[in-house]
Design a protein around this nucleic acid. Structure first.
Lengths: 344, 344
DNA sequence: CTGAAAGCGCTTACAG
DNA sequence: CTGAAAGCGCTTACAG
């Protein structure tokens, strides 16, 4: 450990040792073909001997490219985001890029700040994960910022959120939130349910409103008092379900995601009722644990990891975005044991 | 959109507009106090008008500091990692740093490559999350690489893995894996269990061996055939449990994490047995969903998010590491409904 | 196929 | 309190 790391070797050191110019070393590094075989080998030997590692900042500064892909998520402890990010990382790894994962702590307004961070680092690609916020000022600011990325040649991908009309450069990967919820509702209606409570996600988010929309289209009666507000956490699903259970007319509770559905399951049980005998329950996303809840949860499956992988490939430039700029992903009904025919 | 983003404003642009030198702008940016009030205000005005955003790479290159914290994890889709990362991000956000999350895709050998990436970007701090691999060559390489970070003044934190003796600069945040498993085993023994199957994690990882060690200390009989190999996934827990159930003498299955315990639950049920009447089951970690399994899972609680937060604070320089260099975190037994007294 | 030179956008002593 | 100048470690036309 004799201070051999005190100053990392630089490209100039490598050039010296190999007896070539810095430009030549740079060419070897960047796999330019315009280097003679023998020269290349001498340089590679020097790189190896010096344990040379290119300085990413210097490279980014000189080349105006950073090998960094920015990923903006809500909260890593939510499996929805965790699975998408896992998919992104599978691909950034293959592409030799680095995923810079920024979290907004579930406050979408913080997207702006995180994007500024990413702009500072001149990210080559940016992936915005999860629902967008319906707020004119925020949208305008977001569009402006993303426009800045786009103008510098950065690829921008929206994953799990709708396209931004003013931003033709961006690719959007969307989930069929409305259709999935609709199919789930049809399933319940076919089982005889007519009074179905709904636990929605936080207001003004595209994920929430799209899913809620599916409910409203299918909801028998359109009674707004059947809708309770949640925040996509288990805890909030529990609280919202408690309120819903205060009324005695509902036969089913649908939550806008699985985490809240888990809370609903617990709330139903704590009210002394059983699932699905007294109340049917369903979620959305189909995270792995839905197989293990009591009873196993009926839900709607989203291809989260695949969506993340697609976003990653496009952001890294491995795949091109489709001409339309939009990739629509399905949302399949998964019937398990928390939903059953309503008793006469 | 008239190409107003074509070239982002530079520090020189700001200096021009404010009628000062670049050095002065830099001082304002870095909150140096040695700037006259009026000058500062003029510069801030120019920054605002130009929508100037500092170039992180130029800054990192000039100042040899990067405002980037590297986090190396196994797999983001595993809640163990997701929760720790969420805790890290809470703190990097507060510190105004950026968390660069690298995944090894559950192959710890890939740690080396990811660390080289981080070295390239001159990360100010590095957090290695999760178990280490018992492989002499790998350990040597790791120590060398981390030594390089340390010599450049980067803070290094091991989160959920044992300290590295040859690396005095590093801080280690450890979980009481052995003690937690031991307490879980004592709980089962007190319920009358004497033949307890164990589903271990992947071999040679500290997390696996520490937890297995707790089992071995407490295991009545030390019969090695009671131990089956898993990989920390639900699927592997299912397969290992199936094997364990082939023998008819066991009355309980303990898995090295909750994901595998969920698989065990499913395996027991698919064998036509019930939990806990026929077989008791327990896990490790206490991820949120343990409350919702069928029945709710007895497990050992690890303070994952808190551990991540501590790691984040130290890596960002918000908190100092303790003099000993080691922070030991508890692991509390959480008894739910998957464990019960063995029938006479 | 290779090199000399300028430049990327900052920070930091050094003067004043 | 402020500025001129050098330097951080690369890449990229431009010549040859």
């Amino acid at each position: 450990m004799r201070g051999e790391f005190a100053r990392p070797a630089t490209l100039a050191d490598v050039a010296n040792r190999a007896g070539v110019s810095a430009a030549t070393v740079s060419r070897v590094l960047n796999r330019s073909t315009l280097v003679a075989r023998g020269t290349r080998e001498r340089v590679e030997k020097a790189i190896h001997e010096l344990q040379y590692v290119v300085n990413g900042h210097a490279r980014a500064l000189a080349a105006a490219a950073s090998e960094v892909i920015g990923v903006v998520v809500g909260d890593m402890s939510d499996p929805f985001f965790a699975h998408i990010v896992a998919g992104v990382q599978d691909q950034t790894f293959l592409a030799g890029q680095l995923a810079l994962v920024c979290s907004t702590g579930s406050d979408p307004m913080r997207e702006i700040g995180q994007l500024e961070h990413l702009r500072r680092l001149r990210a080559d690609g940016v992936i915005l994960v999860g629902g967008s916020v319906r707020d004119a000022g925020h949208q305008r600011e977001l569009t402006r910022l993303l426009g800045g990325f786009h103008n510098r040649g950065a690829r921008i991908v929206l994953c799990g959120r709708p396209p931004i009309p003013d931003l033709p450069g961006a690719c959007a990967i969307t989930f069929d939130n409305t259709g999935g919820t609709l199919r789930l509702m049809e399933h319940l209606k076919a089982l005889g349910h007519t009074r179905i409570g709904y636990v929605t996600g936080p207001p003004l988010r595209s994920t929430s409103t799209e899913r809620l929309h599916g409910y409203q289209i299918a909801a028998p009666g359109h009674d707004p008092s059947l809708i309770e507000q949640g925040t996509f956490t288990r805890e909030s699903g529990w609280a919202a379900s408690r309120k819903l259970l205060l009324r005695n007319d509902i036969t089913a509770i649908v939550a806008a995601n699985d985490l809240m559905a888990a809370g609903a399951l617990a709330a139903v049980r704590s009210a002394g009722l059983s699932v699905p005998e007294s109340i049917s329950v369903a979620g959305f996303d189909d995270i792995e644990f839905c197989q293990d809840t009591h009873p196993p949860l009926t839900t709607v499956r989203l291809p989260l990891r695949e969506a993340g992988a697609m976003a990653g490939r496009i952001a890294c430039g491995l795949d091109a975005a489709p001409p339309s700029g939009v990739i629509r992903l399905g949302a399949d009904l998964v019937v398990r044991a928390t939903t059953s025919r309503v008793k006469a």
